[in-house]
Design a protein around this nucleic acid. Sequence first.
DNA 1: ATCGCTAATTATCTTTTGTAAAGTGCTTTC
DNA 2: GAAAGCACTTTACAAAAGATAATTAGCGAT
Lengths: 192, 192
Amino acid sequence: MELFQKIKDKYPYLPEDRILDVLSLGEIVMLNVGDIFIKEGEKTSKAGLVIEGMMRNYIVNDNGEEVTVVFATEMQPSVPYSSFFLGRAASETTAAVEPTILFVMDFLAFKSRSKSDLLYARLYADLLEEGYLAAIERIEDFTRTKPEQRYQRLLDTRGFLIERAPLKYLASYLGITPVSLSRIRKRVSQNR
Amino acid sequence: MELFQKIKDKYPYLPEDRILDVLSLGEIVMLNVGDIFIKEGEKTSKAGLVIEGMMRNYIVNDNGEEVTVVFATEMQPSVPYSSFFLGRAASETTAAVEPTILFVMDFLAFKSRSKSDLLYARLYADLLEEGYLAAIERIEDFTRTKPEQRYQRLLDTRGFLIERAPLKYLASYLGITPVSLSRIRKRVSQNR
DNA sequence: ATCGCTAATTATCTTTTGTAAAGTGCTTTC
DNA sequence: GAAAGCACTTTACAAAAGATAATTAGCGAT
């Protein structure tokens, strides 16, 4: 199976039996555009891994607008973070941006294995490190640059997001309004 | 020793011998205001844990201005994240905001233990989860709110930072200029 | 107490963003 | 094929933030 190979490539220290075990913990789920995987307020231990497509986590702000906090593409986790880490109901909604193939497994089953199996512990630490680092870079971006520069950087480093995600999601992801992003786009395209 | 007790309180699953072992990995360092713990570009495996005082991580933006990415206060880690996770030179500088008592230990020694000791693995995962969650909340803040609301929220949730850190550090932490933060402060104090 | 340095505030002006509303283009649907 | 829905753009105006410079406040050293 292709997923098996992808996991093997990304985490080469995992013996095949562990990969098979991880795969046995979950199942493949197909989502259409807009389908919700986990809804805010839900208390769940379901974790998603994007095999193909794109997911996003969003919250709803004081004005009732959806604010996209993070996108997940191929081989990236799509999970209700605060729910897992705090054992609370999900504070974010997780939904498909594109038709998406998701590998869904039980996080608690995985985490409980990580408490008795060093390889799982290492895998979990790697996953956390990867996500944490991406979050820090995102914060650096917010503190260091202005919206226009953020758009430019996104264009340079993860341009595929701009091609694949609707502009209104991107806008809140960049911390601005769709109107403002539209203006930025115009300025940037007139390269100045 | 007080640090022993604090670790014991925060990570109750750690047996005393592990705590003592952790403590044996490091030493206490005293820093004065402005003292640099780890400098950008340095390749180090030193990790700090704030016992008393305050540290900050900062980067330098395109205009040569310092941008504070994160503060660390009591029992929070003060470390060069990207350096640890990627094995590269530090991309951030870590320095004392207040006179600070820092417990300094070797991250690699700790991490290597976490690869053979489940309790260390769990401790490491807990540390990562804590930091990751804080980072996500920070991102939610940037995407969801305007500078003035961010200041308000900071005032509500971590007001002590505002009392203890210079405004110029807080400004970049909030992603704005010191001048702008000064104006926000004025608006907020005139409660409207 | 004064000097000197830095931080914080204030003032002015420019640029950008937010907000609301209208317009454009494309797809869906009955 | 007209209407409705949606995403994106555009416009107009108000509010906020950036840039810069000048002023004031705070603080340690002499």
